[in-house]
Simulated assay, not measured.
Amino acid sequence: MKWQVQEAKARFSEFLDATLKKGPQIVTRRGVETAVLVPIEEWKRVQSGAPTTLKDWLLAPKPPFEVEVPERGKSRRRPTVEFE
């Protein structure tokens, strides 16, 4: 969600609650995105040196989430077509 700076200042408690419940909140000034308020856990994760490139992320010792890969089904071959 985006908040104008005046609105964020006037309703800071609500702004903070939205960050904690819904994640990062963007602050705009004169229609231009200028800042983001993020939950402290996310800030610490970013500051701790979490992988920043796709390569680092893929090679990290523990992925941030589990990906379930469905089992492959039995594939059928296409019928052979004879040409004259």
Rank of each mutant, 00 (worst) to 15 (best):
M1N: 05
M1G: 14
M1R: 11
K2P: 01
W3E: 00
Q4L: 05
Q4R: 05
V5Y: 06
Q6H: 09
E7K: 10
A10N: 14
R11S: 13
R11E: 13
F12L: 14
S13T: 14
S13D: 12
F15V: 02
D17Y: 08
A18K: 11
A18P: 00
T19M: 11
L20N: 15
K21A: 12
Q25I: 05
I26N: 00
V27R: 00
R29E: 09
R30T: 07
G31T: 01
G31S: 02
V32A: 05
E33M: 05
T34Q: 12
T34C: 08
T34G: 02
A35L: 08
A35N: 12
L37M: 15
P39C: 02
E41G: 14
E41Y: 08
E42R: 07
R45A: 11
V46H: 11
Q47E: 10
Q47A: 11
A50K: 07
P51S: 07
T52Q: 06
T52F: 04
L54V: 15
K55R: 10
D56H: 05
D56F: 02
W57Y: 11
W57D: 03
L58H: 02
L58F: 08
L59R: 06
P61H: 02
K62M: 11
P64F: 03
F65D: 08
F65M: 11
E66F: 10
E68D: 15
V69C: 03
V69T: 13
S75G: 09
R77L: 13
R78I: 11
P79L: 07
P79T: 09
T80E: 12
F83N: 15
E84N: 12
E84R: 04
